[in-house]
Design a protein around this nucleic acid. Structure first.
Lengths: 238, 238
DNA sequence: CGTTTGGTTGATGTATGTCAATATTAGTGG
DNA sequence: CCACTAATATTGACATACATCAACCAAACG
């Protein structure tokens, strides 16, 4: 994708590293940058007053995030690193000028926004109507698909690095760390998938896909093993 | 908002009505139009293979929807009417040309997309971490705020029309119709709010807000009674 | 080494689901 | 306007997925 490399060149020289567990964007503050993750994982998260916490979205290498910095002043949520990361960034004005002038860049930004919206829709469905088991299966399959699609792992690979702790998985899945543990044990006992030491090892891709199928839309059901890696490009309106 | 009236004139003459329970956009099909609801309510919904159903977003009068028709070919979800509606529409190409040429229109579309994303974020938090009671309180307050903000009701009003059945509320809340009924009865018994005959009557706005507070972000907590009607304009990047 | 952080497991509690019966309301054709 | 029907709402008894609490283990870490 050409927009990709153009954005990279806009952000050239701005790359930085951050430790795991750091806060990139603080909820409620002004923010002026748009970011691209080069390596490592991050998340958009909302901490409620009573301590409950929800990871709203998880960002993987290659993802653009805080694109809306271009358009709004404040985020109501924080963005935090999950692992240590390498990222690069551009001031929203820089990106916006390029965006206005170059449709490849506009396309790449729009694609990210649309993709994020698609994932939010799916996640609303999962949280609203899925069991803990279905959600976890969906998440593990989706991570794999996204890693394949961004070239981090090969499309035949059944192993990938996944830095979330069980507590963090729980924060995204909307359940308890204890329950994540139990579902993972069940997956392990049934030789479906093992999550251990920061990596996911899939023993039975089909079995995993079967457990996620109930939550998929009609199109994804066609080939559940590749959820997360078949995306429409924003190809209209050119 | 000027973009509003410009969009209205783009859509001029295209208005149409539809009965309650009709399908405006069928999941998985191509769609070429962007819509604006003039009156009535609609929703984006995903029906799972086993019959579970989730309302992903609910659209109120004034809302633009299917804005992403401008950028992608297919929706994985349907858009259905909840009440009978009056709406108008424009072919995505028409809107895109105007969008490219007129920043007011671009701003209005972006505002809609950003606003929708904000509501999706909040709803992920609600579904992931909220109790049935908290979610329902949040939803009823949010509806009111949005109706105020779009001028359908006055900002002092404690009554509004709300055409969702308990079953449909359940589909958005991610719970069961039976449980919606129980929570509503509890609200009624405690003189918080009554939902009946397609309208919502709030007896204790503060009490309702209190029940939604745990799910609000820091900014919304400032004035919970007006959640849904304080929105940032997309005012950067001009 | 102690201390912390994350993982594992069991016992028990609870919010919400499921099922089923009945009441109420809304829609429809006569 | 009535009689009939289909939705929707309401309520109770019971089931269950998941939460909570608490203990313990293992690895990482200073």
């Amino acid at each position: 994708m050409r927009g990709e490399s153009k954005i990279a060149s806009l952000m050239h020289g701005s790359s930085f590293t951050m430790a795991a567990g750091a806060t990139l964007i603080e909820a409620g503050t002004e923010h002026a940058f748009v970011y691209r993750l080069i390596s490592g994982w991050a998340c958009r998260t909302r901490l409620l007053a009573d301590g409950r916490n929800q990871f709203i979205l998880i960002f993987l290498p290659g993802d653009l995030f805080a694109v809306k910095s271009m358009f709004v002043q404040q985020h109501p949520d924080s963005v935090q690193t999950i692992s240590s990361i390498v990222a690069e960034r551009a001031h929203y004005k820089t990106l916006y000028e390029a965006y206005a002038a170059d449709s490849d860049i506009a396309t790449r930004c729009l694609w990210q926004v649309m993709e994020e919206e698609r994932r939010l829709h799916s996640w609303v469905v999962g949280l609203g109507r899925g069991s803990a088991e279905e959600r976890l299966a969906l998440l593990l399959i989706d991570f794999r698909g996204r890693l394949i699609s961004s070239g981090v792992i090969d499309s035949s690979s059944l192993v990938y690095e996944m830095p979330l702790t069980q507590g963090q998985l729980a924060d995204h899945l909307g359940i308890t760390a204890v329950h994540v543990n139990r579902v993972l044990r069940e997956f392990r006992d049934n030789r479906i998938v093992t999550v251990r030491d920061g990596h996911v090892t899939i023993s039975d891709l089909n079995g995993l896909a079967q457990r996620a199928i109930p939550l998929l839309d009609a199109h994804e059901r066609t080939n559940p093993a590749y959820v997360g890696c078949h995306h429409q490009e924003p190809n209209k309106a050119k």
